[in-house]
């Protein structure tokens, strides 16, 4: 089974996000970068699949040269090889243009299964997995918390509001991850050493044969006009009282009488 994992490098979730001068992007100078947490689940699941099914795990990412760090981390966890699509023409593109680039790159990489995160926690777009599957003409299953492979099919437990549903599909297929799927392993020191020697190809749009006009800013149908900070809440009102009972009564009075929330 050849598995390709789509990995995006994103700012650490603890990061203070600041809006840049152009007001449509964020300042990246001081950020610490990590593998998108949902993509970590994807890498882990791919490694577990390789343990039972054999085959290979390839990491595919699009991004700046710095994104090789995220690929190296996935290689240190145990993936076999990595591909980074690095081209200035992809800059400023929306989720669908990213998916077009990744799908074009996948024409050259053999795969039975593709695993993506449900969303990247920078843009929170929830789109790239579905769109890659559409461009490749393969089925997709989102938000998977468990999968089993047998008889040339994959059976996925997909969560929805208030339940789970078990969906089956033949290969090739794509699924996206949900927390609960697994606990990602850490990269071990020998793993990190080994990762340095694993193949990591860096390719341009020309290498994967995609027209730059349909990607990046030029190819994007959605455009950010401005970024703003959400309006601050008013300062907290601490509820006073001599005793717990009094505080509770005062809180309930406000929630019921004043803001009518209960």
């Amino acid at each position: 089974m050849d598995v390709v994992v789509l990995v995006k490098q994103v700012p650490d979730t603890e990061s203070l996000i600041q809006i840049a001068e152009d007001s449509v992007s964020i300042k990246t100078g001081d950020l610490k970068w990590i593998i998108n947490p949902y993509d970590e689940f994807a890498v882990e699941e791919a490694l577990q699949i390789r343990e039972t099914q054999g085959g290979t795990v390839t990491i595919l990412s699009m991004g700046p040269e710095k994104a090789t760090e995220a690929i190296r981390t996935a290689l240190a966890m145990g993936a076999d090889s990595g591909v980074l699509i690095n081209d200035p023409m992809t800059a400023g593109g929306d989720a669908l243009t990213t998916a077009k680039v990744l799908a074009a790159a996948l024409k050259e990489i053999p795969y039975d299964l593709i695993i993506a995160g449900q969303r990247a926690v920078d843009g929170d777009n929830y789109q790239v997995g579905s769109a890659v599957a559409e461009y490749l003409g393969i089925p997709q299953i989102s938000l998977v918390i468990k999968e089993e492979i047998f008889n040339g099919k994959i059976r996925c437990h997909r969560v929805f509001e208030g339940g789970t549903v078990v969906v089956e599909t033949p290969f090739p297929a794509l699924f996206t991850t949900q927390r609960g799927l697994n606990e990602p392993r850490y990269a071990s020191l020998p793993g990190i050493m080994k990762a340095k020697k694993k193949p990591l190809d860096i390719k341009t749009l020309a290498d994967i044969g995609i027209d730059p006009a349909i990607v990046g800013k030029a190819g994007s149908k959605t455009k950010i006009k401005t970024l703003n900070f959400p309006s601050e809440r008013q300062a907290v009102r601490m509820i006073d009282g001599e005793s717990g009972a009094e505080k509770a009564a005062n809180l309930v009075k406000i929630l019921h009488g004043e803001i009518k929330a209960i």
């Binding site: 926690v121 959605t222 455009k223 959400p230």
Partner: peptide, 20 residues
């Protein structure tokens, strides 16, 4: 139309336009 959506876990709000 201008569409507002949270990004970065709600740390910022983006105003977005759609072409076509």
């Amino acid at each position: 139309l201008v569409f507002t959506r949270p990004m970065f876990g709600g740390k910022v709000l983006a105003d977005v336009e759609i072409a076509g």
